[in-house]
Amino acid sequence: MKPVTEFRSPTKLTYTVSAGTVATEFLSAILQRRIVGRRCPVCTKVYVPPRPACPTCAALCEEPVELPETGTVTTFSVVRIPFPGQLLEPPYACAHVLLDGADVPLLHIVGGVDVNQVRMGLRVTAVWYEEPQPTLASIRYFTPNGEPDADYASFREHV
C-alpha cells in the first residue's frame, strides 16, 4: 500500500478589519501626504505610527504631533533574497528611519540610491506615490536628501 504523505486542504477565512480611531487619524493624514504621530503625556516621547497607549507608561496618547518627512537612517539591512509577499525586487535596503522629532524609528525602504551607498546616519526625505492610499506604503521610499550624515551619538538611543 502506497503511503499517503500529502493531500491538499485549502482553507479560506475572510476578515473585515477596522483601523481603530488612532490609526484612522494617522492614515487619514497619510492620504494628505502628512505624517502625524502622537505624544505620550507622561514621558513626552513621540510615537509614529501613533499608539493609543504609550508602550512604557500605559498612558493614553491623545496629542497629535505633525512630523516632517525628513529623518535619519539609524540602521539598515540590504534585502537580497526573494520571499513570499515581497513588494520590491531585491536587492533593496530596508532601514530604521528616525523622523526628525519622533522618538521611535519607522521600518521603511531607502531607495533612489545604490544600495551600497546606504549607511547609518544617512539623512533622508520621503518620496510619495502620486495617489496616496491609507497605508504607510504610500511613501514609496526614503531617499538621501544631501544633508551631511548625522552623528552616531545623535541616534544611538534610537536604533
Partner: peptide, 28 residues
C-alpha cells in the same frame, strides 16, 4: 512564511522578511 508575512490591513507592508527584521539590529 505566509503566516508570518501575510498582509494585515492598515499595517505597514512586510518589506524585509523574517531575517530583515533582525539584520539591522545585528548591524547595530
Amino acid at each position: 512564511m505566509w503566516a508570518l508575512s501575510h498582509k494585515v490591513p492598515f499595517q505597514p507592508p512586510t518589506i524585509a522578511g523574517a531575517g530583515g527584521y533582525f539584520a539591522p539590529i545585528i548591524r547595530a
